[in-house]
Write a protein that binds this DNA or RNA. Structure first.
Ligand SMILES: [Zn+2]
Ligand SMILES: [Zn+2]
Ligand SMILES: [Zn+2]
Ligand SMILES: [Zn+2]
Lengths: 132, 132
DNA sequence: TCAATTGCGTTATGCTATAACGTGTGCAAT
DNA sequence: ATTGCACACGTTATAGCATAACGCAATTGA
C-alpha cells in the first residue's frame, strides 16, 4: 500500500498521533483537535480508517487506542505480523516484528487451513523504566 | 489458579459460554440470561471477571467477546501464551498454544527488559469450512 | 453534462464497560 | 452474642467507544 496525499483531517489526526508519546483513543484525539475545528467522533474515525488502510497507523485492540507506525518505511507490514509491547504505567509502546514468530504462527494456521487476514499481538506489562 | 466453587451467577454465565458455538459479547450473554433473572450488565461483567481470573474463560480483545477455555485442564495457561484463530464468517474460535512462539516472544521481551503481564494473540480470518 | 467517487459535517443512536450506592449473608475475632 | 470484615449481589446512572444515516460539496472521468 503506497500512501497517497493525506487530506486535511487525515493530516491533523496523523500529526497528533506522531507527536504523542503514548497511544491515544479516538476521543482523546477528538479533544486535541477541537481547536482545529473537529466537532464529532466520526471526523476522527474516518481519518483513522484511512490511516489504518495506508498502514501508517496501528490500532491497539487491547486498549482501544491508536498509535503511529514506528517504522512505516520497512516492508515488514506487507508480509509479516506486527507485535506491540505496551507499558501499562507510562503508556510507551514498542512495535516489533519477528519473522520466526510469523512463520511459526503462519505454519500453524496453514496446518489448520485457516486463512489469516488480520492479526493482533499485544503484550501488556511494564517497560524497563517502569518495571522498578 | 485452582477454580473455587462457582456462584449462581458465575455458573449461569459459564454455562452460556460453554454451550455457545461462538464467542459472545457481555450484552449477548445478558440477553440470554434475562429469563434467569439477569437485569443489568454488571451482573454479567462481575461474573466474567471471576471466570477470567480463574482462567476458565478468555476475553477476545479484538472482538470484545468472551469464550470458554477450550482446554482448561492443561497447564499451558500458567506458563505460556494462548493464541486464538477467529473465523469472521462463522465465529468459530480455535485456541492454541505454541511454546516456540512463547519462547521467541518472551526472549524478545526479556531483551528489552520488558516485564510482560498479559498477552493477546488473535488472528482473524476464515476457517477451513468458510474459506470456500 | 452527467454519473460516480470521495471527503466532509452533523445528528442521532448503538454497543461496551464501569462508578457508586445499598443490601444481605457467612464467617471469624473479640 | 456482637462486631467487623469480605464477598456476592441488585440497581441506577454514567462514562467511554464506535457507527448509522442523512445531506452537501469537490473531483474525476466518460
Ligand atoms: Zn508499524
Ligand atoms: Zn513504562
Ligand atoms: Zn484456554
Ligand atoms: Zn468459519
Amino acid at each position: 500500500m503506497t500512501t497517497p496525499m493525506l487530506t486535511k483531517n487525515q493530516s491533523l489526526v496523523f500529526d497528533v498521533l506522531t507527536k504523542a508519546e503514548a497511544p491515544l483513543s479516538a476521543y482523546t484525539i477528538l479533544d486535541k483537535l477541537r481547536d482545529q475545528g473537529f466537532r464529532a467522533p466520526l471526523q476522527v474515525y474516518r481519518a483513522l480508517d484511512k490511516l489504518l488502510e495506508y498502514g501508517v497507523v496501528h490500532r491497539l485492540e487491547s486498549i482501544n487506542s491508536f498509535v503511529a507506525c514506528a517504522h512505516p518505511h520497512e516492508d515488514c507490514h506487507s508480509h509479516g505480523l506486527v507485535a506491540f509491547a505496551i507499558c501499562e504505567s507510562c503508556g510507551q509502546v514498542i512495535e516489533f516484528h519477528d519473522h520466526e514468530v510469523d512463520h511459526r504462527l503462519m505454519d500453524w494456521l496453514k496446518s489448520q487451513k485457516f486463512k489469516a487476514e488480520k492479526s493482533t499481538i499485544e503484550i501488556r506489562g511494564h517497560c524497563a523504566n517502569c518495571a522498578a
